[in-house]
Design a protein around this nucleic acid. Structure first.
Lengths: 227, 227
DNA sequence: CAATAGGTGGAACGGTCGGTATAGTGCTGT
DNA sequence: ACAGCACTATACCGACCGTTCCACCTATTG
């Protein structure tokens, strides 16, 4: 639908250099973010809470505080483009968090991989709890809403999930997991986490997430003991 | 919102008995179903494919072939009531399928529980594949869309998930699984299956479901060997 | 044959949806 | 001063949303 990308205008802006120090690289508060950023960030939050179809442009504009008129300037592709970028960003952020929370590839195998996984899931559980079970799994809702259609958003979700699976797989391999076992376990972990988030939000209790974390720890130990 | 239940009118109809043999208990084709049934069945299908907010009443009416004017006669609670009943029915149907596919509680433990689980997931994988990755997980989309709000639909989803978890738990206990391990594993299985369905639909491949099935088999064996 | 009641057809409602059009602002380089 | 550009404000659009309303049909009942 959208042949032009909204990013083009940003690139053009960056090209115009002067004595003025451009824009501050890292604005102190979230409110000081340029409007385009605010829209994407708010979209991530609202899509995570309510889903794609339940979130309107008007809501997006109001909550983000972004100027009404700039939505279709920054995102000529409309709501779909906003969702694509929100999904891409959410996926990248999640993958980064996975990499942060798992032990780096040590010289020798046998790192504490299942401990890291349990700790990681505890972080997720805490965040879901703290949000009043409104947040959690920024990809899941949008992915399930758009999986059937096969549009741009569905593609973005697939790529985001692939990135997440890769992050888990590499973490497992760094722990000495065999390649094929790692790719299988990565998918299982990803699936279990996403499912557990839904259950926890539905039950309004972080218990499912914690149970799943414990059981996945068992699974990792069982899989590594047979390697 | 809806104080009156649409079921009341049906009960009143059933009360009016005559020489005429009421209605045939099991109509041969799905098209011969009474309109109320057709609406719920179609709602189940459409919500599963596209989600709650993306499915309109008009679509529901057209696809079900149900009479336009009867929607709010049978469902005074509107779309929300339809969704509640669709979720309830989907949950009951799924729980029934779990019970069918797992070995009945034998005289002694040590039934082939992980084999049954893998076979069950293979059935799910096949169905997801056969639908062109459009169907699968009738609860998941609606649950994630309505988890935050906490309305009637969210409650119905929670109860459906509880029923499913119970079905898995009882199946595990019938296989000789200890009570607390069974309830934990049931949640993990449920989470992994739901997550795997999303991944499979997103990837348009049943591979995630099959990988998860294999890994869950490993987990079950690991858990039972320590019992 | 009315009469009654469950069930149906269809038009119409207010509201909101995503999206468009266009005039205008303020800054930049010349 | 002036042109040009990135960006914003506002009004507006047709389409569709879920829902309501009421006339109407059909079959069982007295």
């Amino acid at each position: 639908m959208a042949t032009r990308s909204g990013r083009g205008s940003m690139a053009a802006k960056k090209g115009a250099v002067g004595i003025v120090p451009e824009t501050t690289e890292a604005p102190a508060t979230a409110e000081a973010l340029p409007s385009r950023e605010r829209i994407v960030e708010t979209a991530m939050r609202l899509f995570e809470e309510r889903g794609y179809h339940a979130t309107g442009i008007a809501e997006l504009v109001k909550e983000s505080g972004a100027p009404r008129g700039s939505v279709y300037f920054h995102f000529p592709g409309g709501k779909e483009q906003i969702a694509v970028e929100a999904v891409e960003r959410a996926g990248a952020r999640l993958a980064g968090r996975v990499r942060e929370n798992f032990p780096k590839s040590g010289p020798e195998g046998k790192l504490d991989c299942d401990g890291a996984l349990v700790a990681f899931l505890e972080r997720v559980a805490f965040q879901v709890e703290r949000s009043g079970f409104r947040a959690g799994g920024p990809l899941l809702i949008v992915a399930s809403e758009t999986a059937s259609g096969g549009g741009l958003i569905g593609d973005a979700c697939r790529k985001a999930y692939e990135g997440l699976a890769t992050a888990f797989r590499e973490a497992l391999e760094a722990c000495g997991c065999a390649a094929e076992a790692a790719s299988s376990l990565a998918l299982t972990i990803l699936a279990a986490v996403e499912g557990a988030i839904v259950l926890s939000r539905s039950f309004r209790s972080a218990d499912p997430l914690r149970r799943v974390a414990a059981d996945l720890g068992v699974l990792l130990r069982a899989a590594s003991s047979r390697a």
